[in-house]
Amino acid sequence: MIDIFTKFSGQLFVGLGWTILSSVIALFFSLIIGTVFAIMEVVPSKIARFIGRAYVEILRNIPLLVITMFFYLVIPKYVMKINGFTAGTIGLTLYTSAFIAETIRSGIQSVSGGQMEGARSTGMTYWQAMRYIILPQAFKIVIPPLGNQFVNLVKNSSVLAFVAGFDLMYQANSIASTTFDQINSYLVVGVLYLIITLPLSYYMQYLEKKLA
């Protein structure tokens, strides 16, 4: 295991870099997109609710690999050229955003209706009440489940390997097929994933305690 690590450390760090980059981009955008669709799912407008619902149900019920392949194979053919890393990261972002939307929606709905009425009765618009009163409370509630989504996101970024996204998993496949040492190749990569995900889950636990 140490042999593989020292011999291929360059390749592994490149993989680690792409995995982290993809995860950070996907985390940022899935949080924004997820929040937008979570809000769409709870607003009074029936059309918006339908669109929000449809987005979430479709994206979270299709395997991540299928979404990613769509962006890797179909979009370049008909729309624009995107490489494996981009396709994988877009797939990861959209897929994760559906789960984040679902998490945040339940957070919003667990804030009591009285908070909205209290805010509206002072003349705030629906959006002001959302922004200043409901969402801040909802985010606090959803930190633990959101943390799970972030950890899942990092693990799911291994989908990049299937579209030649140069991530950790891709490098593992490549190292395993050059050395024929499957066990140790994947072991090294497993440990490298833990190096990203363990601090992330501890940080989320810390955040949860701090805000509780």
Binding site: G114, Q115, E117, G118, S121, Y132
Partner: peptide, 12 residues
């Protein structure tokens, strides 16, 4: 203005 039975102060 409105004053509610359960106050509805902003918890955050």
């Amino acid at each position: 203005g409105m004053v509610f039975q359960h106050f509805n102060l902003y918890k955050n």
